[in-house]
Design a protein around this nucleic acid. Structure first.
Lengths: 346, 346
DNA sequence: CTAACGTAGGTAAACGTTTACCTAGATGGT
DNA sequence: ACCATCTAGGTAAACGTTTACCTACGTTAG
């Protein structure tokens, strides 16, 4: 690393930005007139005035100050997106989809990463509120949301894959049928002849995990198979936990397949299996969950449960924006149905 | 998917938020006094007044309206981060690091994804400016930045791994020694006995790629080896291009190693090699670049060039914020030195 | 006893927009 | 000739803060 210096910055921004008043002065009209033209409320503005204003706008590269605008309109055309872990490819994709969908409708997004920490989440919520976002997408976190904070903020919220009380600023819920997803995953493994299947998931106290476990158990029940508690390992949804959970499981018991409740978990699991010299799927089959875009890129493409992540993100933004347009709009409660994708790890 | 409706939202936000005036009225003082207390400019405010104000703040859950504050202070304590592709794990990590570093210093970040599209990038720049961000981190894109736009905006910028003219609002540059990285990668491959090495990189017109190619060629020159143009394939840094480039290369010529200029590219390449029944590294060795966090998680952990992504992000934010604190601060120009990490694909 | 200072807080303008309502002249109908 | 209706645009308040400067009342030093 090398460092060197340079002449200094010749004055900070702010003092120089063109405002609506500059345009008005140069066009020989008042700011109100310019504002009307800019906002297309210009039925009563003369043709040449209008043209003059637009040409000045181009010439001076005028960009309206959104801050001033938000202050008075009480709308920022920004929506906040809170996710527990942006490094988890599932959320990366979700965020990307939300951003794209929002942009298509003239909104921007602000991303917040909560690290599954309720305090950070609350701080983000407050931050977003104080920055006047028009709505919030709150994605799965293992934790009980700060319901009263949300209630107080009175900002429309769409919840994704999380338990949330029935607030009246809840614009929509987009959930995945985790029970069914886990059921399909386990059933596939059972059908291909496995009887001892490990179950690896996130926070054991989160409904998130409990529900998936129920699906896992249903598949066993329907097949007349017992579920050995020694085969269950729950902690967090990241690859690090996938790795340590699998080591623990391998030390404790034996199994011929793993039902991982996220692809990141499955990636970690795969690494642990390799460490012990076990081949996938011959020595141990692995099912993932989410179908993140990396899943098919693994050297041994991962069998997994498809969640149509982008579609979920697009849906979330659509529901939120519809609600903003018209709060009396019937709210959407969507339950997305997962499907299984068979590749080479099972 | 199922949908159902619900009672309607009992009134939108805004009208209800507590303002500084509410606090002032209840405390029996003026808004100015409250503002002083809130901003700790309260040397001249009496002890009980101060306490009264703080207790009202807690009680009413008052949060200052950042929009109004930004309008007058001309500072939002928000910094914008523009990346070409958030789905590329390299940028995901970078963004995460920037966000974390910024938060530690009381700033927040707004993420923008440019899709390597100069128009989108310009739109984001304008958006960020109009939202009053205090600074911008502009990460590598294959494209020539809109220098005049940047110049006009007068917002401090730190450029990461990209060619950028010497604007006076340039707070810092953080670059990677791509030439050296590519050199190390190719030299490693040459030292392990390969003589026909494919080179896969991003946009062939970007300096980004040209520089790496120079390093690749230097390694050959120093070893007295020729570089066959048939072995070069440049397009984009994502896994899709890695896949198609490798197919093209395999159809056109033969080689025993691949020098990929990003890990995403390497992941795509690996998939293509498998398709053709080629084992890594026995039939073809693969080097990546970036050391994204997934690299070691691949079933065959990727040998790659380490870039210390998080460190770069932290550095960028640090430089930006120092510049904001003091624009006369000597600017930092950092060149990060890559190192090679050997795992199992070579 | 008075000038100077300290203490505790108030006043009002400012930031850059938007918008409900007003005005002044032109045109038209009867 | 007079009222009504357009047309084209102006006026001023409002959004929620911050901040430079002022005030009024002690207290203290000389």
């Amino acid at each position: 690393m090398a460092a060197n210096d340079r002449p200094l910055f010749a004055g900070l921004r702010g003092n120089v930005a063109t405002t609506i008043k500059d345009i008005a002065r140069l066009a020989g009209v008042t700011a109100a007139t310019v504002s009307k033209v800019l906002n297309r409320k210009d039925q009563s503005i003369g043709e040449q005035t209008r043209e003059k204003i637009w040409s000045l706008v181009k010439e001076l590269n005028y960009t309206p100050n959104s801050i001033a605008r938000s202050l008075i309109t009480r709308s920022s055309r920004v929506i906040g997106v809170i996710v527990p872990d942006i490094l988890n490819a599932y959320f990366t994709e979700l965020v990307r989809a939300c951003d794209q969908a929002a942009r298509e409708r003239g909104y921007s997004t602000i991303l917040c990463n909560s690290d599954s920490d309720p305090e950070k989440e609350a701080a983000h919520l407050t931050f977003l509120a104080s920055h006047g976002v028009d709505g919030i997408v709150l994605a799965a976190s293992d934790l009980i949301p700060e319901a009263d904070l949300l209630e107080r903020l009175r900002i429309p919220v769409v919840s994704m894959d999380r338990e949330i009380p029935d607030l009246d600023c809840l614009a929509a819920r987009i959930d995945t049928d985790y029970e069914q997803g886990a059921f399909l995953s386990a059933r596939h493994l059972i059908e291909t002849g496995h009887t001892r299947i490990a179950f690896v998931s996130g926070n054991p106290l989160a409904s998130n995990t409990k529900i998936r476990r129920a699906g896992f158990e249903r598949a066993h029940r329907e097949a007349g198979l017992p579920v050995d508690p020694d085969l269950i390992e729950c902690g967090a949804f990241n690859h690090r936990f996938g790795l340590v959970a699998t080591r623990t499981l391998l030390d404790r018991t034996s199994f011929s397949a793993m039902c991982c409740m996220s692809d990141m978990l499955a990636m970690g699991a795969t690494v642990a299996l390799r460490e012990r010299g076990l081949a996938v799927p011959d020595d141990c089959a692995v099912m993932g969950f989410d179908n993140i875009y990396i899943a098919p890129l693994l050297v041994r493409p991962l069998s997994t449960v498809e969640r149509r992540i982008s579609e979920a993100g697009t849906l979330a933004i659509g529901a939120l924006l519809d609600f903003l347009d018209d709060p009396t709009h019937p709210r959407r409660m969507v339950l997305m149905e997962p499907t299984v994708i068979l590749r080479e790890t099972t």
